[in-house]
């Protein structure tokens, strides 16, 4: 669920663009349901009444598109290489990611660390709460009923469906997100990465490893 506030209130105005695709509609862009039509109708009415501007809607979409899991990957790589940053990240996630220029102000960010004895995985059983200001929009499976229902009851089985086998002697902790609290998993640094630069390490940190359904990628040999 969104807890975002756009602090950018400047108006460019004079925008008569209805955000309609000018290219022929693609198969996925066809309108299938009543709700899709309702969505178009709501957008048109809210723009006509001056509640929002077309440019603002577009800016929100662009903002969403600009936030990707690569932001989180940088945070994890920094935590792997800088012990002082790592300590700050676990003490106060929001302040630590702000050091790297990632603004997360409306929800609390809690970082949890995978270790040889503990594997962490994140869910929002009630909805779709996700650290979207850091990682972008949640993947479709994160919002799915199957994931939300089962990860809290049989996490090892669900992780296996993602191809992640957690050994029996490693504890699995499942974190259920709330509207106010979002989790970032710091995966274990892979073996054989001693000589890698921070940006090379970041490339090993996938979105799925930061949700905890996967581990960080092994470096190429």
């Amino acid at each position: 669920m969104s807890g975002d506030h756009d602090h950018d209130h400047d108006h460019h105005g004079h925008d008569h663009d209805h955000d309609h695709p000018h290219a022929p509609p693609q198969p996925d862009d066809k309108v299938h349901s009543y709700y899709q039509i309702l969505g178009v109708a709501l957008k048109e009415l809210l723009i006509e009444k001056g509640v929002v501007e077309a440019a603002e809607v577009r800016r929100q979409i662009e903002r969403r598109d600009s936030i990707t899991p690569a932001n989180g990957s940088k945070v994890v790589a920094k935590a792997w290489t800088d012990p002082a940053f790592r300590a700050r990240l676990f003490a106060d996630g929001n302040s630590a990611v702000a050091e790297l220029g990632f603004e997360m102000t409306t929800t609390k960010l809690v970082a949890v660390e995978n270790t040889p004895s503990e594997h962490n995985v994140v869910v929002c059983t009630l909805c779709s709460c996700y650290p979207r200001d850091l990682l972008g929009l949640p993947p479709s499976w994160y919002k799915s009923r199957a994931y939300r229902a089962r990860i809290v009851r049989e996490p090892r089985a669900v992780l296996a469906e993602f191809g992640t086998r957690v050994p029996d002697d490693v504890a699995v902790r499942v974190h259920d997100s709330t509207a106010d609290m979002r989790f970032l998993v710091v995966p274990m640094r892979p073996e054989g990465t001693q000589g890698l630069r921070e940006d090379e390490l970041a490339a090993l940190v996938t979105r799925d490893s930061m949700v905890g359904v996967a581990v960080a990628r092994a470096p190429e040999r």
Binding site: D28, G39, V52, V57, R63, R64, W141, G163
Partner: peptide, 23 residues
């Protein structure tokens, strides 16, 4: 769980953006 994520459609992005703008 369907573990392959599918990208948002044009329409889904529009709704997401509209809701964010209203918020």
């Amino acid at each position: 769980v369907e573990t392959e994520a599918h990208p948002l459609t044009f329409w889904e992005k529009q709704i997401d953006g509209l809701r964010a703008a209203v918020g």
